[in-house]
Design a protein around this nucleic acid. Structure first.
Length: 306
DNA sequence: CCGCTGCCCTGCAGGC
DNA sequence: TGCCTGCAGGGCAGCG
């Protein structure tokens, strides 16, 4: 799935292409894409028409567009995000495993897995939600204040991600060490720290020289800090490269691929040499998915926690 | 409360 | 060629 760097790349594109525009028409082509919008597809379509897009926001892997009130569409003045007080409404997006948000000119052929189309009053490019596996989806959600940050209700339980100002590394270190589970399971827990998925978990663990099954309670404070620093580092580097894409499924709003896959040390590199020591990268099955490690740099702990 | 399993979907690669 | 299995970057309900 798109992880934080890929979602942030998309967010920037959507902010550039959609902010300040007003929705003219919405077409839900597959009801499952809006299954989290309880009132249903027709309500989803109807309630978005006439709404203006104020901004594109993100926490972890969730992306949302702050919407203006229907009455605001008369105003030509672009209004930024309302810093405090007035709660608003947002178009919430999660890309799941295979979701894409694309900006496409009117007349571009429909993608095979086009699920939702947005047209705007300016007649310019459409915004399209394309999703092969339909694990992702869109919904309308109220914004609520959580520790000074306006979040859509379904995102209220998601922890800050490592690139947010409100991210508190020491608090995460403490919570991490109080868990009784494997370190990778904890890294993937979006209510502890958000934005990390299978790729960047493996890459950060490799950088920190930690095995995925290392019990969280045995992590020293400095080791936990090093791990979070490695997470931040790998996310920053991937973001600078425009994200990771192995194939056409992971692209920015213009359909362009990121290049971070060229920098992956272990993820997907089974049988190839560890860039640090040359030992052959191994693949383990874990949580019904894969984990990649260097057998020398990341030895399996004696008290491994699966 | 916490940790963990199973499941939601489609498509593709690889084995037979 | 086809059929089958396993796998893919996620998250959530529901269980103990």
């Amino acid at each position: 799935m798109p992880e934080l760097p890929e979602v942030e790349t998309i967010r920037r594109g959507v902010a550039e292409h959609a902010a300040g525009r007003t929705v003219a028409e919405v077409e839900v082509l597959h009801p499952r894409a809006v299954r989290r919008h309880v009132p249903g597809p027709r309500d989803f379509e109807a309630r978005l028409v006439g709404r203006s897009v104020w901004s594109a926001q993100r926490r972890g892997k969730y992306l949302w567009l702050e919407l203006g009130e229907p009455a605001d569409t008369q105003s030509t003045e672009f209004v930024g995000t309302a810093g405090g007080g007035v709660p608003g409404e947002a178009l919430l997006t999660h890309l799941g495993m295979s979701g894409q948000l694309k900006v496409q000119p009117e007349g571009a052929p429909d993608e095979k897995h086009l699920r939702v189309r947005f047209r705007f009053t300016d007649g310019g490019p459409q915004l399209r939600f394309v999703d092969q596996r339909t694990f992702g989806g869109l919904s309308l959600a109220e914004l609520v204040d959580v520790d000074g940050v306006a979040l859509p209700t379904p995102v209220a339980h998601i922890a800050p991600d490592p690139v947010e100002k409100v991210f508190d590394a020491e608090a995460v270190v403490a919570r991490l060490r109080s868990r009784r589970t494997g370190i990778k399971r904890a890294l993937l827990d979006q209510s502890l720290i958000s934005g990390i998925g299978n790729i960047y978990a493996d890459e950060a663990l490799w950088r920190a020289k930690l095995h995925w099954a290392r019990p969280t309670e045995t992590l020293t404070r400095p080791a936990a800090r090093r791990l979070l620093a490695a997470v931040r580092e790998v996310l920053d580097e991937a973001l600078a490269a425009g994200g990771t894409s192995f194939d056409a499924l992971y692209v920015n709003v213009n359909g362009e691929s990121g290049y971070f896959d060229r920098s992956l040390a272990v993820y997907g590199q089974a049988g190839r040499p560890c860039p640090r020591c040359g030992a052959l990268v191994r693949r383990d099955s874990f949580m019904n998915r894969s984990s990649y490690t260097c057998p020398v740099c990341q030895p399996k702990p004696r008290n491994a926690h699966y």
